[in-house]
Computed example of a mutant assay.
Amino acid sequence: MKNPGTVEPAAGTGSSSVVGKSKGGRPSREAQAALNRRILESAAELFAVQGFAATTMEQVASVCGAGKDTIYRRYSSKSALFKALMEGLQAEVLSELDAQMDAGPRDARDRLKRFARALLSINLRPQMIALNRVALGEAVTLGGVKPTSTIEDPIMKRFALLVKQAQAEGALKRGATLFIAEQLLYATSIRPLISEMLGEGRFSDPAEQERYFSQAWKLFLEGALGAGGQA
């Protein structure tokens, strides 16, 4: 996903652009996938810059270079398009986090710390802040985007698993795993995200992000779990 900025039609796209065809004359699977990526990227830019209400399906079609009917064949409404966008974004985040964890340390507590720090960096990307702001606004309106329950959230599941593994290794005290994971997520990631969604601007400085995370992680170990405060 691109960071928000001035929204312009993608280079080389337009209603007359040539799409790869299969032998039967229909667009190939690769071309269909590329078009769908272009639709979602264009929608992400528009939603991030303009918000949900000001963005229209016609604008998405214009920016991505596809016909409006093409957009509606894939997404029956603007809400459906936004939901698909957020689901795709979450899948990208999970893939990025999993790749980082695969290359990371084996120690469970270090893995938990690495996961929390990586998620903070991802959440504080400008487009992520903007789209979460839009999602929050839609979640409180009729017909808006409904948030995933904590117990079903795939990021929360990974947090809880890492906490459980750290507990099993004796690095953290035993306790309600999901509750502990929720508190860690809020302290290290959600609180800064909310701050930026409100326009405070405090965490735009990478040094401030690192300072805040180090403090939050230390307090998590010392206060919430009594784990000795060793970073």
Rank of each mutant, 00 (worst) to 15 (best):
S28Q: 06
S28V: 09
R29N: 07
A31T: 00
A31G: 15
A31N: 01
Q32H: 01
Q32N: 11
Q32Y: 04
A33Y: 05
A33L: 02
A33H: 02
A33K: 01
A33E: 13
A34D: 07
A34K: 04
L35D: 09
L35G: 05
N36G: 04
R37L: 02
R37I: 00
R37S: 03
R38Q: 06
R38P: 00
R38G: 04
I39S: 10
E41G: 12
E41R: 15
E41N: 11
S42L: 03
S42D: 06
A43C: 06
A43K: 13
A43H: 10
A44Q: 04
A44S: 14
A44K: 09
A44N: 07
E45F: 06
E45N: 05
E45G: 10
F47Q: 13
F47C: 10
A48F: 04
A48Y: 11
V49C: 13
Q50L: 09
G51T: 02
G51W: 07
F52W: 01
F52P: 03
A53I: 09
A53G: 03
A53W: 01
A54I: 03
A54H: 09
T55R: 05
T55K: 00
T56V: 10
T56M: 01
T56N: 08
T56P: 04
E58R: 15
E58H: 14
E58Y: 07
Q59P: 02
Q59S: 12
Q59V: 01
V60K: 05
A61T: 00
S62W: 09
V63A: 06
V63Y: 06
V63C: 10
V63R: 06
V63D: 03
V63L: 11
C64K: 06
C64T: 10
A66K: 14
A66I: 14
A66M: 14
A66Q: 15
G67S: 15
G67N: 15
K68A: 07
K68V: 04
K68D: 02
K68N: 02
K68C: 01
K68W: 05
K68L: 14
D69M: 09
D69Y: 02
D69Q: 07
D69N: 15
